[in-house]
Amino acid sequence: MQYAILFYETDKEFATRDHDAEGAAYWGAWRSYVDEITASGVVRGGAGLLGPETATTIRLADGRKHVQDGPFAAAKEQLAGFFLIEVPDIDAALAWAAKAPCAPIGVEVRPTLSGM
């Protein structure tokens, strides 16, 4: 089955990305996770995302576009990246999710709609 694993981070992690000293540990952890999951052959797609301050949200109301600066929902935890993976079952997907550096914050696992 195919699953999306959705990584969430807080302002702290997003800020760490540009930090010299702590940034090295942050990127090192993600680098080794991405290397491991990629080498395993389960990855079908995915990307890391720039911070929520770069997000733009659009809503259509009465045929008019309302464009807004910022992410879809104001929450402490924001989407930071995702993978699409092909694994036998949810236990395998959860095992990959648990290995992510942001697992202490939370990783969402969702099956994808098949046939699309």
């Binding site: 089955m1 699953y3 036998p88 079952d89 949810i90 236990d91 997907a93 099956p111």
Partner: peptide, 10 residues
């Protein structure tokens, strides 16, 4: 069914 919970011994 949809989440793919396996019928397996952990």
């Amino acid at each position: 069914r949809d989440a793919g919970i396996p019928f397996a011994i952990p």
